[in-house]
Design a protein around this nucleic acid. Structure first.
Lengths: 206, 206
DNA sequence: CTGTGTGAAGGCTTTCACAGCC
DNA sequence: GGCTGTGAAAGCCTTCACACAG
């Protein structure tokens, strides 16, 4: 597997393609051309074809791609074949909000526990997930072999918590705190900053 | 103003720089080098300097940048000098979650109203914001001259709602629905898809 | 004849190297 | 001496053009 040569942007687009394919699948479409799929994913047809060739040949010339088969290939490449356990750290405003929003679950991810400095039975019931104190973070991650974490703590403690996560063995962090986390090279961080997205939009409407 | 020549990625990074500067400001730092600021923003020093030169010269050679002054310049360029009114469409799980999370407010954006197909007094009170039926969307946008919208409706109706927003005069959409919106060139869309971010991470931990 | 696969060209961003100013 | 500003070079990604398969 020469996954190291696949550009990050390509990997990101694979998810877009997968999403678009799922919509076709429920629409009972059996086969799709690069032109049609590219449009649904918001990219150019040549880019879609180029992206796919990074890890194999999946289409039939003159016909297109099998929706079913390409879907499967993509889940294999993306590593979403099995349900991936995830923990959420920081059950404050945003963290609690994300827990209530169950958008992750249906896409192959399960939030198996949440962590916060302050825990209580009633709060745990509100959130509908196991709520543990920060002191148990390291042990839990190690025992359950957790590899992915959603980080929704305040920016002031984000780096410190990230350090604890990394030390316990977490390899991927979805970071909502508005700071750039310093982590070892083996750890991947994706940043989501809603305020920055809005700020970015505001530039374009002047 | 030759804003058209500034790369999109540069504009995005300006927000990162601004964020980093705010942290320095509360730390009473008066002046900062490109090396220090770049590290805080997670980029290379040369890139930071190149980004800034797209719209002027702000530093002092041998010294660095004035935190105060550069902050102001950035808000000018980004267009966040004035408080920008925003509406949220779709007060379901995710929409409600974002309303409860007040991360936007402190960054210069105010959610002035939320829209949903079903409205009720108690629901509006829970959300802490004016909750209006979808039928009033167009009128409200036109009267209040709303330019920015956060879209948190189900994917199945997202395009339809986006059309209504665009027709009423909205110029920028922060889209959380998992589809690619088709909009006129004058309208800017930023997509945020939490499931895709997780999926993307899962590729890197295989 | 339709639609994929792909080397080559083109375009865009990042990085380098160093001149210029404090 | 330290640090910014910037043309030039390098690197990366996208798009083109067309060969090739069904």
């Amino acid at each position: 597997m020469q996954k190291l040569v696949i550009p990050r942007k390509t990997v990101y687009r694979l998810s877009l393609y997968y999403r678009a394919l799922q919509r076709l699948r429920v629409g009972k479409t059996a086969t799709v051309s690069s032109a049609a799929l590219a449009k649904a994913a918001g990219v150019k047809p040549t880019q879609l074809r180029k992206d796919l060739t990074y890890f194999g040949q999946f289409g039939t010339r003159g016909l297109g791609y099998s929706v079913e088969s390409l879907s499967k290939q993509l889940t294999d490449v993306l590593g979403t074949t099995r349900l991936q356990p995830v923990i959420l750290v920081g059950a404050g405003n945003l963290g609690a909000a994300l827990l209530r929003y169950h958008g992750f679950a249906k896409e192959g991810f399960e939030v198996v526990a949440a962590f916060d400095v302050k825990t209580s039975k009633t709060r745990a019931q509100q959130l509908g997930v196991k709520l543990l104190p920060m002191t148990e973070l390291g042990g839990f991650v190690r025992e359950q072999h957790i590899k992915m974490a959603i980080l929704t703590v305040p920016g002031t403690v984000a780096q410190e918590v990230a350090n604890a996560l990394v030390e316990a063995g977490v390899l991927a962090i979805l970071n909502f705190a508005p700071i750039i986390l310093q982590v070892p090279d083996r750890v991947v961080v994706n940043n989501v900053d809603l305020a920055i997205e809005l700020e970015n939009l505001s530039y374009f409407i002047q």
